[in-house]
Simulated assay, not measured.
Amino acid sequence: MQPEKVQVESFVVAGIQTRTTNAQEMNPLTAKIPALWGRFMSEGHYNRIPQVVADSPVYGVYADFESDANGAYSLIAGRAVSAASSETASATIAAGTYLKFAAPGPCPQVVISTWMAIWQYFQANPQIQRAYVSDFERYESPEGIEIYIGVQG
């Protein structure tokens, strides 16, 4: 999978949040991400986020990185908003250079396979350094995903 290098302007995403690690997510007994997405959909958060930007897709935002891929991070399931609110968790997508990995297919399988491809890409390209400021998934439809990984430089 070959990513596309893109420039992203800063924006804010609000929704519901969890804190986890990749190690926790590898174990079905400790994984928090499936439950977060389950709550987002089943509890109607999609329609309850204040100040949503018109026609905003759903985002999964990875932020507040403790260190690197081995450290803790926060994940927000949400939508783009015009301003953060105290009613929801929020994260700012940092402006900068991102690698966009796009893949068609049904969720959640395409999400898992795309993340596997991303990890393989960075292992094969150690000269490209992740920024670990903000990464995000963009869901325009249930049949595909775009994952944006912030990189240095």
Rank of each mutant, 00 (worst) to 15 (best):
I33V: 15
S56D: 13
V6S: 09
V110G: 10
G60Y: 03
F101P: 05
Q120T: 08
F101W: 07
A102S: 15
L99Y: 09
M116K: 12
A14S: 15
E9W: 03
F136D: 03
Q24L: 02
A14H: 02
Q7A: 06
P34T: 05
Q51L: 12
F122Y: 04
E146Y: 07
Y46A: 12
I16K: 02
Q152A: 05
M1E: 12
Q129D: 08
T114M: 06
Y139W: 13
A94W: 05
Q129P: 03
Q24E: 12
V53E: 15
G150M: 04
M1F: 12
W119C: 01
R138N: 06
E9N: 13
A23Q: 13
R79F: 03
Q24G: 00
Y73M: 00
A131R: 15
A94R: 14
S67M: 11
F136G: 09
T18K: 00
T97P: 10
A72Y: 02
S74E: 14
S56E: 08
V151C: 12
P106N: 14
D68G: 08
M26A: 15
D135L: 10
E25D: 01
P50F: 02
S134C: 15
R138I: 10
P142G: 13
G60N: 04
K32G: 00
A23Y: 02
P142C: 06
Y121P: 01
F136K: 10
Q127E: 10
G144E: 09
A131C: 03
V53N: 06
P34R: 01
M26V: 00
V81E: 05
M41S: 09
L29M: 06
E143H: 14
S82Q: 14
G153M: 02
P57D: 09
W37M: 10
E146G: 13
V111Y: 10
F101R: 08
N47H: 14
T92H: 13
M1W: 02
V110M: 14
N22G: 02
V6A: 04
W37D: 03
G153H: 07
E87V: 00
A83F: 10
E137A: 04
G144N: 09
G38N: 15
R79K: 15
V6R: 09
Y139S: 09
Y73P: 01
L29T: 03
V111K: 04
L75M: 13
I76S: 05
T88K: 15
Q109T: 02
A84T: 04
S10D: 05
N125S: 01
Q17I: 01
Y148M: 08
T88M: 15
V110S: 11
K100C: 14
L99A: 09
Y59C: 06
D55F: 13
Q129M: 11
R19Y: 03
D55W: 12
I16L: 07
I33W: 04
V13N: 00
S56K: 02
P50M: 04
